[in-house]
């Protein structure tokens, strides 16, 4: 009996956020798998973490900024585009992203 429930709507919403077009079969499959995985994660709910700070970085580096000076440019425009599948006038040529009307 699975205690963590995820609705198919939630799976669809997550898929949309992740930019996936999933079939009904895949939605169903991921629903089951995510429920099973999350069920195993429920043990975390029992840990006392009220006064614990979160860890996002382990070696203590904070705000690594370089000097605000112009840097050596690593790639020229030509180099950046050298292996692009499609270019036009020095730019990447990509498919339209706005619907035509």
């Amino acid at each position: 009996m699975k205690t963590t429930k995820i609705s198919p709507q939630k799976v669809r919403q997550v898929a949309k956020l992740a930019r996936f077009t999933l079939t009904d079969n895949e939605i169903h499959k991921f629903q089951g798998q995510l429920e099973t995985i999350l069920e195993h994660f429920e043990t975390l709910g029992k840990v006392q973490v009220e006064d614990v700070e979160a860890t996002y970085q382990t070696t203590g580096i904070k705000n690594a900024c370089r000097d605000d000076k112009r840097q050596h440019c690593s790639l020229t425009q030509k180099e950046a585009l050298q292996n692009a599948p499609n270019t036009q006038k020095g730019y990447f040529k990509v498919k339209g992203i706005l619907p035509e009307n």
Binding site: Q13, V47, T55
Partner: peptide, 19 residues
């Protein structure tokens, strides 16, 4: 990471990571 689940999952995991 999605809204409504972030605290219970990602944030909590990052805290237990400290432990």
């Amino acid at each position: 990471l999605s809204a409504g689940y972030y605290d219970a999952y990602y944030l909590r995991a990052s805290k237990v990571r400290t432990l």
